[in-house]
Amino acid sequence: MSTGNMNLTLKIWRQKNTKDQGKMVDYKVSEISPDMSFLEMFDVLNEDLITKGDDPIAFDHDCREGICGMCSMFINGRPHGPKDAVTTCQLHMRSFKDGDTIVVEPWRAKAFPVVKDLTVDRSAFDRVIAAGGFISVNTGNAQDANNLPIPKAQADSAFEAAACIGCGACVATCKNASAMLFVSAKISQLALLPQGQPERYKRVQNMVAQMDAEGFGNCTNTGACEAECPKGISLENIARMNRDYYSAKFVSEEEG
């Protein structure tokens, strides 16, 4: 089968822990197959480092099929690398050429401190969801699911917003380290559905407040987040969130 013939130079961010200053370190890998995923290329490098007695490179990854949102590498200046609409784990070495130099850094944002090397702490996202990214319904006797028809187009739009995998590429690529694409995707999903209406305005206020408290920056409509999002989450969601956020100021307590 397939040991390949690509030889590459990697410049990788190494940082022992959150407090360490960190630096770029050069590595060489050889016999890389174009069929390998980018992370499998890292497996080869780590295997080599372990055999030599060096410290392997820490990086987050889990499902390796583009859905868990755990992998998070900033490759040649772009989150998840050079291809559109894929995560790092779905990036394959056939997207690179023999002899390339590839620069790999962690997500960089104040709200995402580096844990080690390429691993960062994204728990701020969970806290934003905990602040309001839900519909307050306890488990129990919900009404029959078909009692409330939802127009297909509306349900489809909600689904598109819900496709966010929470990887944080939007934050990493934004010059302001803004999380507005992530936050607005959840707000949109729930604002588009009838079930989300009762808490609609309280939700947007609570989630935005938490987003600010976590130290994410503001949005200046550059659109890098949309361009780099592996799931194609649209900027329209940010517009929708902003509308709801301003509307919320005019909505009385009783309405939400």
């Binding site: 839900f134 319904v137 009404q143 699911a145 409330l148 819900a162 079930q195």
Partner: peptide, 13 residues
């Protein structure tokens, strides 16, 4: 299914 829809899970329609 009832519970998931009540939570805002966007199942296909």
């Amino acid at each position: 299914i009832d519970q998931a829809v009540a939570q805002g899970v966007p199942l296909a329609r």
